[in-house]
Amino acid sequence: MKELSELEFPETIRYTEDHEWAAVDGDTVRIGVSDYAQDQLGDIVYVEMPEVGDMFEKGDEFGTLESVKAVSELYLPMGGEVVAVNELLLETPELINQEPYGSWIVEIRPTDPAEYDELMNAEDYIEMLRG
């Protein structure tokens, strides 16, 4: 596992305590997991994703990431409807390890776009990781 200083945390997106990130893209938001999360999990072998059209509240479990010997639940940073899932990850889950911020998992249309502003910015998130 890497030191915190070796990991990347772009400042243009927001983070959660459960290590998901959220990035606004027009009127939808893309969700993925942070560099820290993929590093902790190690080689990701499978991504379990919801179906397009599923509705979730903020904090709901919307899928799982699996490494060889661990399962990690994914929680939605903002409530909303799933409008797309990244099907590329079904065949090549390792993309999350390679490009955690390029590999969005789901795209949602948020019920309340203001929830985005409640999420941590990079600075706060790094602060949290330092504990």
Partner: peptide, 9 residues
């Protein structure tokens, strides 16, 4: 595919 099993999940 051990993540299906009791010792992990």
């Amino acid at each position: 595919l051990s993540t299906r099993e009791q010792h992990i999940r």
